[in-house]
Design a protein around this nucleic acid. Structure first.
Lengths: 193, 193
DNA sequence: CTTGATCTAAACGGACCGTTTCGTTATGTC
DNA sequence: GACATAACGAAACGGTCCGTTTAGATCAAG
C-alpha cells in the first residue's frame, strides 16, 4: 500500500508475516483503486516492496491471491440472520451481501475471481471447489433452517440455494448492486415459494 | 482459420467482406481451440492474414468482436418452444441452450464476453445494453406467454426471467453445462411456481 | 484524374508474464 | 560454532500482447 522505505529482508528460513501482510494489503489497495483491469502481480510487487518470486512462491495463481484477500471477514461483516422465515432471512442477508460487495473491495475481488476463472483452469477449480463451498456454507444454513421449519422439502435446499447464488452472481457481474428494495423483495419472494 | 497464402489487398474505399469473414472465422476458430485464455487480437490477425489496424478499426473493443462472433444463428439453433406450459417450454429451451453452449463455440464466446466485461467498462455496457436485450428477447416471450395464460401475474415476468438468466450464467461460468435432466427439471419447477 | 477510404506489413513504446540468477539474511540442526 | 536450508528482494531474462503509427498499395466514387 504505502511505499515502504526500508527493505524488508528475509527473516530466515521461514515465511515472513510482514511480507504476507504487505502483499495482501497492496493487492487490496490496488484492486480498490484500479479494479481488476489494473491488477497485475508486477504492480502488487512494486507497491508491497516485495519480489515477484516471493509472490509467486506463495500464491502461484492470481486466483489464490484473490481468494486470500477476499475478506475472511465476510462472515464477520455479514451476520447470519435467523428471523423465523426464509423470506426475511434472505432479504436481510442479500441486502447485507450487496452492501458488502459495494462498499468493500470485496465485490471487485469477487468479480475478478470469476473473470479469472474464465481464463485459467486452476482458477476455475479453486473457485468451484475451494472458494464456493467455504463461502456458501454460511448462507446455506438459512435454507437448511427453512427446510427444517417445513417451508419446503429438504431435497430442495441446494436447488433453491443455487438459484439464489445465480441471482447474486448476475447482479454483481453486471454491476447492478443498487439496493432496490422492492425489486429485490419480489425476487426473493419467488425463491421462497 | 486456415492460413491464407495470398495477401488480401484493399478492394477500394469500402469494407472488405472477405476480410470481415476471415477475421470472424479466425476469431471463432481460435476461441474454439484455445479458449478465452489464448485469445488475442494479435493471434486473430495472424490467423486471418489481416492487419491489426483493420481489426481495431471495425471492432474497437474485444467485446465487439465477441458479440460479432456469437452465433447470429442462436435463434435459428434454438427454436422457441410453445408447448402450453412454462415448465415444459423452459425445460426444452434451457436444454437446447446448454447444448448450444456446449457444442458450438458459443459458450466460450459468452464466457469470454462476461469476463471481458469485468475488465472493460465498454464491454460491460455492450453486454448490458446491446447483447442482453437482443438475446433475451426470444426467451422472454416464453414468460410473457405464460403470464398471458395466467400462470402468474404479468408483473412477475421480468423477475422470473432474471432468476432464470442468473441460473444459466452461473452454470456457464462454472462450466457446468452437463444435461442433468432431473436436476434441471427441479430448478425449473421452482421457477414456475 | 483526383480524392479518400480501405487494405496489409512492419515497427513502435510500453506493460506484464512467469522464471532465473544473485547476493543477503536468519533459522534450525549437527 | 559451523553449515545446510529456506526465505527475501533486486534485477534481468525472453516472450507475448497491447493499441498506435507509418508507409505503400488498391480501388470506388466524384
Amino acid at each position: 500500500m504505502e511505499p515502504n522505505q526500508k527493505r524488508r529482508a528475509s527473516i530466515g528460513a521461514r515465511r515472513s508475516p510482514e511480507t504476507e501482510a504487505a502483499v495482501k494489503s497492496a493487492a487490496r489497495g490496488l484492486l480498490a483503486e484500479k479494479g481488476y483491469a489494473g491488477f497485475s502481480i508486477e504492480e502488487v510487487a512494486r507497491r508491497a516492496g516485495a519480489g515477484k518470486p516471493t509472490i509467486y512462491r506463495w500464491w502461484p495463481n492470481k486466483a489464490d491471491l484473490f481468494i486470500a484477500i477476499y475478506g475472511a471477514d465476510k462472515d464477520a461483516a455479514i451476520p447470519l440472520p435467523d428471523e423465523g422465515s426464509l423470506r426475511s432471512d434472505l432479504l436481510r442477508y442479500t441486502t447485507d451481501l450487496w452492501r458488502f460487495w459495494r462498499e468493500d473491495t470485496a465485490g471487485r475481488v469477487f468479480r475478478g475471481l470469476i473473470a479469472e476463472a474464465q481464463t485459467s483452469e486452476a482458477a476455475l477449480a479453486a473457485l468451484r471447489f475451494k472458494f464456493m463451498p467455504e463461502r456458501l456454507a454460511s448462507p446455506r444454513t438459512m435454507f437448511v433452517r427453512a427446510a427444517e421449519r417445513g417451508e419446503f422439502a429438504a431435497g430442495e435446499i441446494d436447488d433453491r440455494l443455487e438459484l439464489w447464488v445465480g441471482f447474486n452472481w448476475f447482479h454483481v457481474l453486471t454491476d447492478q448492486l443498487a439496493a432496490d428494495e422492492p425489486s429485490l423483495a419480489r425476487k426473493i419472494d419467488l425463491l421462497c415459494r
